[in-house]
Amino acid sequence: MRALARPLAATAGLLLLAAGCGSGADSGTEPVTLQVYAAASLQEPFAEIGEEFEAAHEGVEVAFNLAGSSTLGQQIRQGAPADVFASANPQNMDTLVGADLAAPVDFTSNTLMIAVPPGNPAGITDLASLTRDGLNLVLCAPEVPCGAAAKTLEESAGLTLAPVSEEQSVTDVLNKVTSGQADAGLVYVTDIARAGDAAEGIEFPEAQDAVNTYPITPIRGADHAGLGQEFVDLVLSEPGQQTLADHGFVRP
């Protein structure tokens, strides 16, 4: 019993400490953390824009929550402390507009590209060659934005794609290609830019039929809504747009 008492007391102490940390209120002198919830594909350009924002705003730190857009949308609807939300498609933003939390503007766009392993072992040339028998083609599931775009493409081109796997995210598709598991996959142009030598990209004209538009918004009623608006303005500004373009994004 005595042997147990000490760890118990320590645990209780830790719990009290944790509770104390949670209740600390923001005072004017404390550094401000701007919470930016952004689609995972925005990781690199937003990190750069975030640094620029921090340099221009003393005492402000930009923290990113990068995940799938629908996950982020759900978190925000459940009351997550987001100040800014950048979604990879309009649908996930619309649910926030419906909840009167958002006033979005389109800030960039992304198109699909065929990704193949280095050297293109399966000899893929265009969209039609993805329908070949015995090809290990990997797509996103239609439930996620990249999969919805692939489906739009499939319908507008009048093709039937038979993937061996419908992945949860575009990163999963890219990983299946770079690891050589898949012969080809449909990913965003920006993912090819991110993959470097690990994957090759093949452009195809039909991609213009399924352009993904990215909306961004400050969250209404957030802790730092004013700063959030400034972050959105920076993303929309010329330097912000240039950063996005450097990573393969295209102005809508």
Binding site: A141, E143, V164, S165, E166, E167, Q168, Q181
Partner: peptide, 27 residues
């Protein structure tokens, strides 16, 4: 499973993968 096997209905998409996917569109 999701890292190694992929996700396709009837072949590799087990119940936990289906739950994770449905969460995207239909919580």
């Amino acid at each position: 499973t999701i890292t190694f096997a992929g996700s396709l209905q009837g072949t590799t998409r087990t119940l936990p993968l289906e739950i994770y996917l449905q969460r995207e569109s239909d919580p």
